[in-house]
């Protein structure tokens, strides 16, 4: 009886896509159409004809510089947070007691979400012109703003971004580090390997693919971030998301109607390439892990 029942359920749903239609359609309308519009507009002149002028405009002058600056910010933020996050993850995974690990994972989940406006203001209160740390260091005889530091710069943003990027890295790296079996390390020892050798031959190769994948994730995160940068720098630093924002709000007068779309297309392209690399690497990372 039961078997027949089961078979019927399976066979009836065999070729059906019906249940997936609403969600897929929704994503198509509210993500696909806007993204498609941006991509199409990127190649369209004000009169509606096909053109490369928008793309050319996006690749010259300030706009090219903002791509460079955005990538620079994303690369710096990624490299620092990736290594910092990896170190934290290693420190946490090594604990014999699992309670601190869970606490730190929960905290990371929380801090990874602390992007945006409130974060920007917290850092103004910390490292801004009159921030607590700024004044503390100043009263100790070291005014960081006299030494070239500014919170409202790429360096400042790099520090602020650590606040949500490091926790993301911790969260992503804990599972692969956890999957490193103690028996691999012990087997290597009994076979004659010292710790540096074990790092080079076993831990390194196993951790590297997920590490790289996670780094790509952090890159897209830092590259696409808008709120923190907007709240903190009010458009002082030329970053691509900020430029697009200015174009949307009509703060900038240009001859190019669809320049913003060209910039947006550039962002989709960069994030897309990184996303494909991420998927490739995650698959490789999963190959070894059971």
């Amino acid at each position: 009886m039961k078997v027949i029942h089961k078979l019927r359920i399976v066979s009836r749903g065999k070729k059906s896509y019906l249940g997936a239609v609403p969600l897929v359609a929704y994503v198509g309308v509210f993500l696909g159409i806007p993204a498609g519009a941006v991509i199409v507009d990127a190649f369209r002149s004000a009169s509606g004809s096909f053109t490369f002028r928008n793309i050319q405009g996006a690749m010259t002058g300030t706009y090219l510089a903002s791509f460079v600056e955005s990538i620079r910010l994303a690369v710096f933020s990624t490299v620092i947070s990736a290594f910092a996050g990896l170190l934290v993850a290693i420190a946490v995974v090594g604990m014999a007691d699992t309670r601190p690990r869970r606490a730190i994972m929960a905290a990371s989940g929380v801090f990874a979400n602390t992007g945006g406006v409130p974060l920007a203001f917290s850092f103004i209160a910390t490292l801004g012109n009159f921030g607590m740390l700024t004044r503390l260091l100043s009263s100790a005889g070291f005014n960081i703003y006299d030494h070239g530091f500014s919170l409202y710069s790429t360096t400042g943003l790099t520090i602020v971004y650590q606040y949500f990027l490091i926790p993301v890295m911790v969260l992503v790296m804990i599972p692969p580090l956890e999957a490193i079996n103690e028996a691999w390390l012990e087997a290597a020892q009994t076979l004659g390997a010292t710790w540096p050798t074990i790092w080079r031959t076993v831990i390194g190769p196993v951790v590297f693919p997920p590490f790289l994948a996670a780094s790509l994730l952090l890159f897209t995160d830092a590259f696409a971030a808008y709120a923190t940068a907007a709240a903190l720098t009010s458009g002082v630093i030329p970053l691509v998301p900020i430029q697009i924002g200015s174009l949307i709000q009509g703060n900038v007068v240009t001859g190019e109607a669809n320049l913003g779309s060209a910039l947006g297309f550039g962002m989709i392209l960069i994030v897309g390439i990184v996303a494909v690399a991420y998927i490739r690497l995650s698959q490789k990372a999963q190959k070894w892990l059971r």
Binding site: N181, A183, W184, A187, T190, G192, A193, W288, L289, R290
Partner: peptide
């Protein structure tokens, strides 16, 4: 130290280097 003891050890399971 363990890496100088010249002992061959077989573990419970999953001890092969996955890479």
């Amino acid at each position: 130290a363990a890496h100088k003891r010249e002992m061959g050890m077989v573990f419970q399971a999953y001890s092969l280097f996955p890479n």
